[in-house]
Amino acid sequence: MDQGRGIVGHVRRLGRQTLDGVARLGRAMLFLLRLTPGLPVLFTRFSLVIQQIYVSGVLTLIIVLVSGAFVGMILALQGYNTLVRYDAQSSLGLLVALSLVRELGPVLTALLFAGRAGSAMTAEIGLMKATEQLAGMEMMAVDPLKRVVMPRFLAGWVSVPLLAAIFSAVGILAAYVVAVSDLGLDGGVFWSQMQSGVSVTNDIMGGVVKSVVFGLVISWIAVFEGYDARPTSEGVSLATTRTVVSSSLAVLGLDFIMTAFMLRGL
């Protein structure tokens, strides 16, 4: 639509985009509400959820394992380099574990998940819409929200916390290997320092809470963008991009908010 040129045009466009954004948020919210009656699919058609956990969780496992190992090793090297200046290299285990469990594990896993599984989810649902598969289901008296969208949403939500835990665990193990074999630290000190400094209730539960929230938000964005996509190939590719961009931004933004709350002991 032509909004005219000059400053007035810009202001109009800006206003229009803002309104569009708010409307989009509202649509996403309503979509989530429309999704909730499909929740029993978890019990009635559990195999559908299992199948989607395979697609979004198991197939993302490789990239999570590899990234987790590398991040752990990098943390060990960088952390050692800094700590050794204060003769505090015995705290390396603590540093690595806290970084992974509280921040890097949940956040990096969420970002990887958005790029690998979230985008695939959007593309799949968008393509099913573009090729009339969803309409076909509706005409076969099958609710695509229950049959297609809900299993993917639930599977994504469940997968992220599990992947994040695996990411952190692998990262810590990789850091341990580097610390002991390469940096010559004592393995016992590595673990004992970690254990005395990492609290299960604050640090580990905090990380789990974060990854549960990230899983919910990414899966929500991914299925919404797919379902809301214009049913054309451009529409689907646009939606896929949007899933990665908005879920990454949402993850980082929410991480900041949750970290702020957690560090203030709320």
Binding site: I166, I172, I204
Partner: peptide, 15 residues
């Protein structure tokens, strides 16, 4: 694997 990782975090990494 996910649950095992969580257990490891809770028992071996944290106190």
């Amino acid at each position: 694997a996910g649950l095992l990782a969580l257990a490891m975090l809770a028992l071996k990494v944290g106190n």
